[in-house]
Simulated assay, not measured.
Amino acid sequence: MKSLRCTVHIDESAMHPVHRRLTNDDALVRDALLHGHRAGDGPDTLMFYVEGDREAYVDALESTDRVVDYEVTPLTEEACYAYVREHASDFDAELQGAFELPGLLVVPPVEFRSDGTARLTVVGEADALQTALESVPAAARADVEKVREYGGPPASPGVDLTDRQREAVAAALEVGYYEVPRQGSVEAVARRLDCAPGTASEHLRKAERAAMAATVEAD
């Protein structure tokens, strides 16, 4: 059984409106599909991890009539989960179908990036993987990054944080900064660290970005 890692280049005209917004708005950084249930006769149900300005992302959801409803759950000032129900386009259905042929499995996340590409991993037999690449619709192009024997899911990645960033995360956990709803503030973290709130916020943002990037991009 093989594991295929590829980058799919999508014509702008075929992009999902939210993905197109990601390529044009510096306030949005990353949109990663974590889970999805594709419905044949109704809206699809999808769960995303999003990095960037939350209001800009909500505005992108509101700006397309493909989205039936959604719920956004904040994680940090610059990251959130988004539960979305939406109608797939013909292109989306065709692209999805190419990588969900019998004998294939898409391994989440599927990462939509600001350069207009989508990055994904597919597991299956070599012949089925080749058929998938040949079945990509004309409005897209799949570039193969890596093909190897599948050895199971990757181990949990290590996160390279500075000592100060680890202190900031520990303080944030202690004051309830990551509780839902949030119990502690950046100011409370700053008091624990004996620094300015802006400095504490910067430590947390850098630590959170490192942790999320390591999780989402683990290969």
Results as ranks from 00 to 15, higher is better:
Ser3Arg: 15
Leu4Pro: 12
Leu4Asp: 05
Cys6Glu: 15
Val8Cys: 05
Val8Arg: 12
Asp11Phe: 08
Asp11Gln: 06
Ser13Arg: 13
Ala14Gln: 09
His16Thr: 09
Pro17Lys: 13
Pro17Trp: 02
Pro17Gly: 09
Arg20Met: 06
Leu22Gln: 04
Leu22Gly: 07
Asp25Ser: 05
Asp26Leu: 04
Ala27His: 15
Ala27Leu: 13
Val29Cys: 13
Val29Asn: 10
Arg30Phe: 05
Arg30Tyr: 02
Leu34Tyr: 03
Leu34Ser: 07
His35Val: 02
Gly36Cys: 05
Ala39Val: 07
Ala39Pro: 03
Asp41Asn: 13
Gly42Ala: 15
Asp44Ile: 08
Leu46Gln: 06
Glu51His: 11
Glu51Asp: 10
Gly52Trp: 01
Ala56Met: 06
Val58Ala: 06
Val58Glu: 11
Asp59Ala: 14
Ala60Asn: 12
Leu61Gly: 10
Ser63Ile: 04
Val68Pro: 06
Asp69Val: 03
Asp69Lys: 07
Tyr70Trp: 14
Thr73Asp: 12
Leu75Cys: 07
Thr76Phe: 01
Thr76Met: 03
Glu77Phe: 00
Glu77Pro: 00
Glu78Lys: 12
Ala79Gln: 05
Val84Leu: 04
Val84Arg: 00
Glu86Val: 07
His87Ile: 02
His87Glu: 13
Asp92Ser: 12
Asp92Met: 13
Glu94Lys: 06
Leu95Thr: 04
Phe99Asp: 02
Phe99Ile: 05
Glu100Asp: 14
Leu101Phe: 03
Val106Asn: 08
Val107Gln: 14
Pro108Trp: 00
Pro109Thr: 13
Val110Tyr: 04
Phe112Gly: 01
Arg113Asp: 15
Gly116Pro: 04
Thr117Ser: 14
Thr121Lys: 03
Val123Gly: 11
Val123Ile: 15
Ala126Thr: 12
Ala128Cys: 14
Gln130Cys: 02
Ala132Ile: 01
Ala132Met: 09
Leu133Thr: 09
Glu134Ile: 00
Ser135Glu: 02
Val136Lys: 01
Pro137Met: 12
Ala140Asn: 12
Asp143Asn: 08
Asp143Ser: 10
Glu145Gln: 10
Lys146Gln: 11
Tyr150Ile: 04
Gly151Val: 11
Pro153Cys: 07
Pro153Gly: 11
Pro153Lys: 14
Pro154Cys: 04
Arg164Ala: 05
Gln165Cys: 09
Glu167Asn: 02
Ala168Gln: 00
Ala170His: 10
Ala171Asn: 14
Leu173Ile: 13
Leu173Tyr: 15
Gly176Asp: 07
Gly176Thr: 01
Val180Thr: 15
Ser185Ala: 01
Val186Arg: 01
Ala188Thr: 10
Ala190Cys: 08
Leu193Trp: 03
Cys195Ile: 07
Ala196Asn: 05
Pro197Ala: 10
Pro197Phe: 06
Gly198Phe: 09
Thr199Met: 11
Ser201Arg: 03
Glu202His: 10
His203Pro: 00
Leu204Phe: 05
Arg209Asn: 10
Ala210Gln: 12
Ala211Val: 01
Met212Trp: 09
Ala213Arg: 13
Ala213His: 15
Ala213Tyr: 15
Ala213Leu: 11
Thr215Val: 14
Glu217Trp: 03
Ala218Phe: 03
Asp219Ala: 10
